[in-house]
Design a protein around this nucleic acid. Structure first.
Length: 637
RNA sequence: GCCGAUGUAGCUCAGUCGAUAGAGCAUUCGAUUCGUAAUCGAAAGGUCAGGGGUUUGAUUCCCCUCAUCGGCUCCA
């Protein structure tokens, strides 16, 4: 029979051959690496017989699909180990995830670290036995009978939901309901590690029973696991919470859970980004505004927040009237809009604000700067005519993507979120708004993921998710199209025909939260921020106090050139001063001693690189300014 | 909110099978004036997260609360 290969080649194989035979016929190396196969677009087991004219791709650990199959098989091994050790444990669900896999168990008592050790040992044993994964397709009744005899209520529930033919995979005597495919046998998993244990609700619903979830990771080579563990350790070093403390950028206190305190150095970073953003916005035609953080109850009823967002809001009483601390800036901007009459000639009209908002997040979700209860949005609202919607959204998308580039973020994904359960406005409005966003994404040929039901309560949105080093995806930018607020606040403008009409409103944020964005930057750069963002750009290190005077003259000149500089005048050895500046991740160190005093040039040391030789003061200044000018907005000045 | 873990000096961590605690770094002071990642010495620093209980006696055992961490859920 003929088998079509991905490159367009055709391979002749005997009748009844499977993908493993195919791999062998191509190369022994491929046969060794083969985990499963993709036949006519569907992933199947390696030993499943092929048919004439099938298109076959051998899946290895090099492809995401191969990894996912490998991890999924690993989760089965984990589940087998758990049930062998704890026969009363009921198995729920065990998929591969982005970084590894998990399996959920219903057990009497949560797993202890000792349990985990025992489980890992048992997994090793199962792996060493090289038990084949065998696929079978019994009747639904047979499967039902098997799992009910074992009391596997979760499997039965899953079985009921299956449309089409269910399948079962068996390793030795252990069986699991599973679509597959799997690697040929348990021996393929050469390295296995449990990463963590956590509670998780059955089907993610907190009304359901809490199960115990074991997260794990696995690889076909031990060295890959070691590499992964090393990577995890590296990632931990980049944790912005740790770096924030070490670099003295910000802190958190029990006196205000979830409210960040910005220290002087953190404030320098914050303000540098804010200044940059402000300039960029003004250049792009935005007008900066500032609105109060406390506004009365009535306003929030009008905006719909009272009905749809109350759980996340803080309240206070002023003169016996209930007020709310703003969780969003839009109502304030609406009041400014309404303060005067507007013409179509003013459109698109863009209000921009560094808006300080408070949101009551559940305490367990707080996470450093990534998730806080008080944060500053780089928020804007664009008022425009319905015709301007698509060009405006296109413009905003480009603006956001250009801004991300300045910070070196090219890895992000875009999501389109549609009408949630809690919403305001009519279905026609939603329909129109969702179509508008979709059409922009499609016209711009942008890859996006659809997130049904995840929109804001007043409109659908396009979100930008930046990926950090820990491979976590963080929502930053957002563009939300809103027909409801203009309606609720009875916004008007006078059109060309002299008629009063209703404007459209676009909510958008770029960094989303300044706080979170700084957290992402810290992790992205491992704390070693680029020169233009570093709180201290240059540290001057005199060799001894004989050179302090010269050092202060250099310091003064650098300061005059607008460079953030500090001098370490302590009576310490130069090695000690260098070490401290390196630990503090200061990008540039200037060493001043006898040589420099005589020659008038400066010894420069770059963070992470070491001594880079001599430079004149003028040269240093122009180099540092060049670094800063890499950022395009500063280029215009 | 739920499940689990953790909470000892500013930081990282020892320790106490129940008799109120120790190191390194950081800090302060003194000495050292030194050439590319840690000079030496001394001092100071803790109601052992907070509250309650058991006990002659609790930082240690038990309970509650708070916070932190890892998840479920939510979200910028």
């Amino acid at each position: 029979m003929k088998i079509n290969l991905p490159g367009g080649n055709v391979k002749e194989l005997p009748e009844g051959a499977n993908a493993f035979d195919l791999a062998k016929s191509i190369s022994p190396k491929l046969a060794q690496a083969a985990l499963a196969a993709k036949v006519n677009g569907t992933a199947v087991d390696l030993y499943r017989p092929l048919s004439d004219n099938d298109s076959v791709e051998i899946l290895t650990f090099d492809s995401p699909e191969g990894v996912s199959i490998f991890r999924h098989s690993s989760s089965h091994i984990l589940a087998q180990a758990v049930q062998e050790l704890y026969p009363d444990a009921k198995i729920a669900i065990g998929p591969a995830i982005e970084n590894g896999f998990y399996y959920d168990f219903d057990v009497e008592k949560p797993f202890t670290p000792e349990d985990i050790q025992a489980i890992e040992a048992r997994v090793k044993k199962i792996i060493s036995e090289k038990i084949p994964f065998v696929r079978s397709e019994p009747s639904t009744e047979e499967i039902q009978q098997y799992f009910s005899s074992k009391g596997e209520i979760y499997k039965l529930e899953l079985l009921n939901a299956i449309k089409g033919l269910p399948s079962v995979y068996t390793q030795g005597t252990w069986k699991d309901l599973c679509r597959g495919p799997h690697v040929p046998d348990t021996g393929y998993v050469k390295a296995f590690k449990v990463l963590s244990v956590a509670g998780a609700y059955w089907r993610g619903d907190e009304k359901n029973k809490m199960l115990q979830r074991i997260y794990g990771i696995s690889f076909p080579k031990v060295s890959m696991l070691e590499e992964y563990i090393h990577l995890l350790e590296e990632a931990q070093k980049r944790d912005h919470r740790k770096l924030g403390r070490e670099l003295d950028l910000f802190s958190f206190h029990t006196e205000g859970t979830g409210f960040p305190f910005w220290h002087p150095k953190g404030m320098l970073v914050y303000n540098t980004i804010a200044d940059f953003s402000r300039k960029a916005h003004l250049a792009a035609g935005y007008m900066e505004v500032k609105t109060p953080i406390i506004l009365n109850e009535e306003l929030w009823h009008k905006s719909g927040h009272w009905d749809k967002y109350k759980e996340n809001m803080y309240f206070t009483t002023i003169d016996e009237q209930t007020h709310a601390v703003k969780p969003m800036n839009c109502p304030g901007h609406l009041l400014i809009y309404k303060n005067t009459a507007h013409s179509y000639r003013e459109f698109p009209m863009r209000f921009f604000e560094f808006g300080l908002v408070h949101r009551h997040e559940k305490s367990s979700t707080l996470h450093g700067l990534f998730r806080v209860r008080q944060f500053t949005q780089d928020d804007a609202h664009i008022f425009c005519t319905p015709e301007q919607i698509e060009p405006q959204i296109t413009e905003v998308m480009n603006f956001i993507m250009n801004m991300y580039k300045v910070f070196g973020f090219e890895d992000y994904k875009i999501e389109l979120s549609t009408r949630p359960e809690k919403y305001i406005g009519s279905l026609e409005m939603w329909d129109k708004a969702e179509k508008a966003l979709q059409s922009v994404l499609e016209q711009q040929k942008i890859d996006y993921q659809l997130n049904p039901g995840d929109g804001a309560f007043y409109g659908p949105k396009i979100d930008f998710h930046i990926k950090d080093v820990l491979k976590r995806s963080w929502q930053c930018g957002t563009i939300q199209l809103d027909f409801s607020m203009p309606e609720r606040f009875d916004l008007e403008y006078t059109d060309i025909d002299g008629q009063k009409k209703r404007p459209v409103m676009i909510h958008r944020a770029m960094f989303g939260s300044m706080e979170r964005f700084i957290g992402i930057l810290i992790e992205h750069f491992g704390g070693a921020l680029p020169v233009w963002l570093s709180p201290v750009q240059v540290k001057i290190l005199p060799i001894s106090d004989r050179f302090i005077e010269f050092a202060s003259r250099v310091e003064l000149q650098l300061k005059e050139a607008g460079i953030r500089v500090e001098t370490d005048i302590r009576a310490e050895k130069i090695g000690y001063k260098i070490r401290e500046a390196e630990v503090n991740k200061v990008p540039c160190m200037v060493i001043i001693g006898e040589k420099e005093l005589e020659s008038g040039s400066l010894s420069i040391r770059q963070h992470g690189k070491g001594d880079i030789g001599l430079l004149s003061l003028d040269n240093l200044i122009s180099r540092l300014s060049d670094e800063t000018r890499k950022n395009p907005v500063f280029n215009n000045n």
